[in-house]
Amino acid sequence: MTVFSTKPPGTSPSAVTSSTARPKTRARRPNRLFRNLSAKIASIPMVLTAVVIFLGGTVWTVVYSFTNSKLLPRLTFVGFDQYERLWATPRWLVSIQNLATYGILSLIFSLVIGFLLAALMDQKIRFEDTFRTIFLYPFALSFIVTGLVWQWILNPEFGVQSVVRSLGWTSFTFDPLYNEDIVIYGILIAALWQGTGLVMCLMLAGLRGIDEDIWKAARVDGIPMWRTYLFIIIPMMRPVFVTTLVIIASGIVRIYDLVVAQTSGGPGIASDVPAKYVYDYMFFAQNLGQGFAASTMMLLAVAIVIVPWAYLEFGGRKRG
């Protein structure tokens, strides 16, 4: 097969006629590259950004994670030393544990609560707009503000604990941010408060996309409402769930500012997260190599989650 024409489509009437004259598969070939040429030219900067900055930066980071770079990057390779040190560091292990706890719980709770709220909103209630605004409002706040607000609410001196105590229960204790065993749940509460509104909205949009006739059919068949939701509606909402999952998951891995605002990783190192470890070792400890090693591990963790998912999602579509 040979490529005949490099002319973009529509430049001359002859090109169109000549392409229609040929068999379809042959005629399309040269056109594919130049279809929507202006759009492709317009996306070149973003493609360059992705390749040079994202991909290039990632490769650079991985390469330098095998060096003993301190304050400034240096190409003195030390093999897996940085990784050995990383996995022998208690703080890193604590941060991984925290991320796992936080990640799993926040995934489950934000999906469940978000869907429940959306389902309740979908019952044709009055003042739906008002409720929707109230639930979505926290999402308009940054993590820093959210963190500060919840730091005050959970502060035993003037938060929930002192309010309950002033009502008469003097032995009431609720200080998650100052208890190393449960501090991560204190952060989880704030994250859920901030994030479930968005999940609710996404779910609500999904629910609204379900054809009214499906509900009618289910009602005619006498299927109880909860079963309709569980076995008919939720499977139909798969694309919405996938989108929501990606949004929540990306929020989990990069969690940093909420922790900084709420506890700065404390008490001690009990609420530390990987992103904070990376930042601290790159900039405070002036040990770039160690920070790069930690961020490479974060990338690896994301890849382990994303790659099988992408394979299932996109690989499956090609076959079907």
Partner: peptide
Amino acid sequence: DLMSQFFA
């Protein structure tokens, strides 16, 4: 890291 963990 060690000392803040110890004290907390």
